[in-house]
Amino acid sequence: MASKPRLHYFSGRGRMESIRWLLAAAGVEYEEEFIKEKEDWGCEKLRKDGSLLFQQVPMVEIDGMKMVQCRAILNYIAAKYKLCGKDLKENALKDHGQDYLVGNRFSRADVQLLEVILMVEELKPDVLSKFPLLKTYKGRISNIPTIKKFLQPGSARKPPTDEKEYAECIKIFY
């Protein structure tokens, strides 16, 4: 059995949150190694062995690779777990079905749109009040079993970044 993906980032949402969402949508369990101190960010071992390409995080260890760059990581996960269209034309979003954004199946696009909707609702709870189709869409995607599990209290989903967490992040990365 392959080992679980290992995520390297600080404990907040940031650029890793979309990766967490996509892995959760695929039903993939993962481990996280949080960067808590500036010395962790230095990650001398990771830097010396070449793991931190461009000296940056997030980094995901998956299938024997150490990947950085969010878009590359998301593309890899979407392709590996078939959370994308069945071909390149479907991935371009031209033809979609009734229930999903790509083709007629659940995909990375659905996951990322739901993530954005929920983040905006945290700031403005009634944002969907004038958009009944988006409200219905949100309900439908939120009830997909893997997504529903990720939305439950106690899941790996991170809460909104507060002032304390923001200050910690600044202390680590700057």
Rank of each mutant, 00 (worst) to 15 (best):
S3M: 12
L151P: 04
S3Y: 00
A156M: 10
G42K: 15
Y100K: 08
P153E: 14
S142I: 05
N75R: 15
A167I: 00
E115C: 11
T161N: 06
D110L: 03
F106A: 05
L133H: 08
V102E: 03
P58I: 03
R6F: 01
K164H: 12
L46Y: 09
E33T: 15
K138S: 06
A156F: 06
P132S: 13
R20Y: 08
N104F: 00
C43D: 15
G50D: 07
R108P: 02
E33Q: 15
L101Q: 01
G14R: 00
L118Y: 05
L53N: 10
F106N: 03
K45S: 12
K80Y: 03
T146A: 11
R108V: 01
C43T: 05
Y137T: 09
L134T: 02
C84I: 06
K36V: 08
R157K: 14
K45M: 09
L53H: 11
K148N: 08
E44V: 08
S107F: 05
A167Y: 01
F34R: 11
L52H: 11
E17H: 13
K4N: 14
L83H: 06
G64R: 09
L23Q: 13
K171C: 10
G12M: 00
W41R: 15
E90K: 10
A78H: 01
L118H: 02
G64F: 09
C43Y: 13
D99Y: 10
V116K: 13
E165W: 04
Q152F: 02
M59T: 09
A25F: 11
N91R: 15
Y9Q: 05
R6L: 13
K4V: 06
K38T: 13
L83T: 08
E90R: 11
A92Y: 06
K82I: 01
K66S: 12
A24W: 00
K4F: 06
E29Q: 09
K36W: 07
D126M: 02
P125G: 03
D40V: 11
L83N: 03
Q152Y: 01
L53F: 12
P132V: 08
T146V: 07
K138T: 05
V111S: 00
E122I: 01
